[in-house]
Design a protein around this nucleic acid. Structure first.
Lengths: 243, 243
DNA sequence: CAACAAACGAGAGCAGTGCTCTTGCAATTC
DNA sequence: GAATTGCAAGAGCACTGCTCTCGTTTGTTG
């Protein structure tokens, strides 16, 4: 961490500490795939890495700190998956393709890691409050989605207009999101239209809701083919956003 | 002391059993407001009603059965709240007002009972599978929303059309939902348009996502005034559905 | 009315949990 | 080499869901 003394070789103890920390995290991640976040047993994790439970506390002061580490790691993994899918679209000027690829990647990651998805987007573990360290990794997906939409808008796709029945103050309500866009350096001009930002937030919410409903089983009896339904949702969201 | 027992139908023991069952449920509901569903402690509930933990097992065979009872009771409460809000709209032929009233009631109930909401729509408790008894109460809200939309459609509001980029098979994917509509006796004609059904499902998903994001704290930093944002979302959903 | 069976509350006990504290050993630093 | 620090292990505390046994109360039936 200290840039002034990088040449100093890590001692055996430091190396072991990093390795064991990673090992514990990996074991916890594996345990998470067999039980919910609330049921994550620190003792079971300790057994998996061949330690006694109290020894784990040398590396993570509490179960919540372990959860935080898991949270960040999972957020990053999802962010990487989404960004990689977007980056893989050959035509950078085809926002519809980029939108579809990114949204598809999010669902695929969620299906591949349902317990990690629940950790990220499910009801929070009682008594646990996610610390500040998690908010940047948590915004990676929505930041990329906004990037795609803002780029499309700047390329000429018209911004949606607010419906007649919309309440006043909506623009002000999403001012924080617009400010965040500016802070993250997205969008070359001063401000993205509030209606566009609000609609993108809504679309992301729908993405989240659709995946959650599928994973938590709230769609059984209503939707047969979840993959087709999801791609239909994504297409309609893009349609709403792009005109 | 068996003199005054006129009711043949219900013995004193049966009456007591019903009362105590209700008492346990009430205490569990209260406990749920202080911890998540996964952390619901049967022993704590037992203490609250002045029993020993093993005695509670006379009324609920396991913690999961207690959870199921809580689930049904909460689903029903939310359903009643949503239906009452819709029924309170004076002009039955104003579908926009009915839509708004119902959606608003859902959010208000969720905010008033965040832990119950998490029990219903949060990530499922690990190792717990909701039994069949819960699916009918679980569909009350979406059934009422569909009712409103179908009535609006039959009153002349045009059904939305599928966008050009939509995948084939979307209509087939939501066939189960259309069939459920017919089974519940909603809609006077044969079938509601698949696009309308799909869009309503999407809208309900967005409602769920918006409330969940607000409750789980995923909107902090992006949205200032949650109430205004929510009403803006509801208005835009209605606009998408009715235009 | 008496006898029997079912239901019941209480308590002990089992295996598990998160977490704290102490103990003795090993690695690092002075 | 001595002092300090980091570490794993173990015991222990208070808690959990759940099972089993025990004596008592309630309801039914002969």
């Amino acid at each position: 961490m200290n840039a002034a003394t990088p040449a100093k070789a890590r001692t055996a103890r430091q190396r072991a500490r990093e390795e064991i920390t990673a090992e514990i995290l990996l074991a916890a991640r594996a345990r998470l795939a067999e039980a919910g976040p609330g049921e994550l047993s620190l003792r079971a994790v300790a057994r998996d890495v061949g330690m006694v439970s109290s020894a784990v506390y040398r590396y993570f002061p509490s179960r919540d700190d372990l959860l935080t580490a898991l949270l960040i790691s999972a957020y990053d993994e999802l962010g990487v998956a989404a960004e990689a899918a977007d980056d893989a679209v050959p035509d950078r000027d085809d926002p519809a393709a980029r939108w579809t690829a990114t949204c598809t990647a999010v669902r695929e990651w969620a299906i591949a890691h349902p317990h990690d998805y629940a950790l990220l987007y499910g009801s929070p573990v009682s008594g646990y409050a996610a610390p500040q360290d998690t908010i940047v990794p948590a915004t990676r997906v929505i930041v990329r989605l906004v990037q795609i939409i803002v780029a499309a808008h700047e390329a000429g796709i018209p911004a949606p207009v607010a419906p007649v029945g919309a309440p006043a103050g909506f623009d002000a309500a999403v001012a924080g999101a617009r400010e965040a866009i500016a802070r993250f350096g997205l969008g070359s001009d001063a401000d993205a239209p509030a209606e566009l930002v609000g609609r993108t937030l809504m679309a992301w919410t729908t993405i989240f809701g659709t995946i959650s409903f599928e994973l938590w089983g709230h769609l059984v009896g209503s939707v047969e083919d979840h993959a087709i339904y999801y791609s239909g949702v994504v297409a309609r969201l893009w349609d709403d956003l792009s005109g």
